[in-house]
Design a protein around this nucleic acid. Sequence first.
DNA 1: CCGACCATGTAATATGTTACATGATTGT
DNA 2: ACAATCATGTAACATATTACATGGTCGG
Lengths: 207, 207
Amino acid sequence: MSLEHAILGWLTTGPGTGYDLARQLDQGLGWFWTAPHSQIYPRLKDMEARGLITSTSEPVGAKSAKRTYEITPDGRKAIREWTETPPTYPPNRDGERLRLIFGDHGNLAALRTHFETHRQHYQERRDSLSRFLHEVSSRQQPRIARRAANAPDEAHQELVIALREIAYRGDVHRAENEIMWAEDCLRWLDAFEVRHGLAEHGSGTGE
Amino acid sequence: MSLEHAILGWLTTGPGTGYDLARQLDQGLGWFWTAPHSQIYPRLKDMEARGLITSTSEPVGAKSAKRTYEITPDGRKAIREWTETPPTYPPNRDGERLRLIFGDHGNLAALRTHFETHRQHYQERRDSLSRFLHEVSSRQQPRIARRAANAPDEAHQELVIALREIAYRGDVHRAENEIMWAEDCLRWLDAFEVRHGLAEHGSGTGE
DNA sequence: CCGACCATGTAATATGTTACATGATTGT
DNA sequence: ACAATCATGTAACATATTACATGGTCGG
């Protein structure tokens, strides 16, 4: 039930609407969780019913309203207890790897495309993450900067920023690792084609 | 719907029962997908109804039966087409990272445990993967060895093993990357504690 | 007035997890 | 006899995805 923890955690950086949350989750990267608004709104209601968050409703036009949520002391306690328990690791599910190991009938062009897609995906991911990491470090992410500014002392301020840097940097490393792997695979494929006299493609490993 | 592709792919290495499949998926690593038997049996029935697989039933005792499934030409076509389309990447969901970035209230002991748990998890994962990789390379994995042996020529035989080696080696690298990250984090935490005069713990970064 | 974006909701469907339930076989 | 393992199923519940549906505000 980590959607709930993502919501609680986000609300520790300040109040906000379901829409604000959805925007940060499913579009614009910078996040370790995603959810569409269809999951968010019902969950917010449920969490309010359980006292983890409260909301104030502001009328908009004649029939509509905008609801701003805020975390409660109970909610703070819940997110704190959750973060203080060691991480658990869900079972691995990796469609890319399944595609790879069962793609052994000999379509080498498809394999090449596979590795190139992989490389490109993680190049884009790395670039987005690097940009976001830079925004965190330079306090351009308003919610994170605010949370840091509200911290009780210098050590806490540093911690708020440092943990996010550590997290995003870890994901940058992951992306770089995937890029290297994809490039190793492409080199292996080149060699395989040469070895078996199948090298009919025009370009080498380069873009 | 990758459970279906995992099933089809597995059946390309030979016929088997739902139980055999479940064993390889949810216990014993060596897999890029998992599912409990409660998901497998209904899915097998559904796939048989759609003509992707067929089964033969062997009576066991008076009231029970054991059902062995086999892939059909339609099933082969489906898995082949699927593997030949480029990989797609599901949205990222990472509870560990959520725990980390929202664990910024200053419980450094919890952070230490977090990083140590992370390191240990990936050390175990790396070791299991390495063992499995070795079993693949040395043809000790019977289903994979059989699939390689049945391949039409030397190039195909090599491909069956090589793709699996590539896949598992990629996951070994991932695990090693996580271990390095966790160790970086522990060193950062040591320095943080020293810098803020909070170094009251007994041991250093070492185990 | 129209399109982009703000804002909230429901419904249908698919997928994943945990628990309950039953029976056979094999070795101790 | 009993435990472990083989073997198959259902039910209840939680979570995730996609689509449908509505209304407001603001700028051009």
